[in-house]
């Protein structure tokens, strides 16, 4: 019931960013989840638990449904084109986000998302981008308070030192890696419990990738993180738990899920071993 409260009442109130710097992330559990596009079953019968303040990686070859799965976790699946539909449960602290009467808009405020391609708002400056989630949701914040949130979020996203002298420049003027960290700053500025990342480094060079990976390590003290990646080295570097998915025999489904250290050393499934040793995929 407490989670019900959270979902219904949590709004990004600006002041709390500064008050509670040590926000604890929340865990998440997925039960019997099926995701469809029209009549086409893309992801079948997924069951897994994401531990709070841990990084869970979803790996698997292209088209195995990992992006579809991560988008069901904050109800972004339903805004994808192609008559999308979800069956099953996704719960935060026991509250199903697909229960009747739950507003998807509120769910997305609690569970933020970073996308594959950096997508800062091109009509907004760097600081406006960081504050976009608060401003677009109708939050009224003073100038000083706004600046503090901008600084705090950009520091958390390890971008502050690079952009502090040009906060009023367009977000589009930054490099790809900086843009992606700006998007992360924008996501954490609204104080979510969980941060989803859909291949956040696949459009970036190795140095920018390293920065984002270090950042993920920093962020997990405050947020629960789920990351989709098709880079197995990345999964082994940043994640605590790994889920391996495949869609070779029908719809995408979970092959194996467990602590990353075990998945990459002693996988129980032959197919997992084949994939992580590079024998296919």
């Amino acid at each position: 019931m407490q989670a019900q409260e959270e979902i219904n009442t949590t709004t990004p109130v600006a002041g709390t960013v500064l008050a509670e710097t040590a926000v604890k992330g929340k865990g998440m559990s997925v039960r019997n989840l099926n995701a469809y596009y029209g009549n086409y079953l893309a992801v079948k019968d997924v069951n897994m638990d994401m531990e709070p303040n841990k990084v869970t990686a979803l790996i698997g070859p292209s088209g195995c449904g990992k992006s579809t799965l991560i988008r069901t976790l904050n109800r972004m699946h339903e805004v994808t084109p192609g008559s999308p539909r979800v069956e099953g449960e996704v719960s935060i602290d026991g509250q199903n986000i697909y229960a009747a009467g739950i507003d998807p808009v509120r769910v997305r405020r609690l569970i933020g998302m970073v996308f594959q391609k950096p997508n800062p708002f091109p009509t907004m400056s760097i600081s406006e981008n960081v504050l976009a989630g608060i401003k677009l949701n109708g939050g009224r914040i003073g100038r000083k308070e706004g600046l503090e949130i901008v600084e705090q979020s950009l520091r958390q996203a390890a971008l502050w030192d690079e952009v502090k002298d040009r906060l009023s420049r367009s977000g589009a003027s930054l490099s790809g890696g900086q843009q992606q960290r700006l998007c992360i700053a924008r996501t954490i500025a609204v104080q979510p419990e969980i941060v989803l990342m859909d291949e956040p480094c696949s459009a970036l060079d190795p140095i920018a990738t390293l920065k984002i990976e270090n950042l993920i390590e920093e962020l997990k003290s405050q947020y629960t993180i789920v990351i989709v990646t098709h880079n197995m080295q990345q999964a082994s570097r940043v994640s605590d738990y790994t889920a391996f998915m495949l869609a070779t025999d029908g719809p995408g489904h979970l092959i194996e899920f467990g602590p990353t250290s075990r998945i990459f050393t002693k996988p129980t499934e032959k197919r997992t071993e084949d994939y992580i040793t590079g024998r296919f995929g």
Partner: peptide, 12 residues
Amino acid sequence: ALREASLALGVP
């Protein structure tokens, strides 16, 4: 991507 960015921030 811009629509998704906004929706993912919990904007109606």
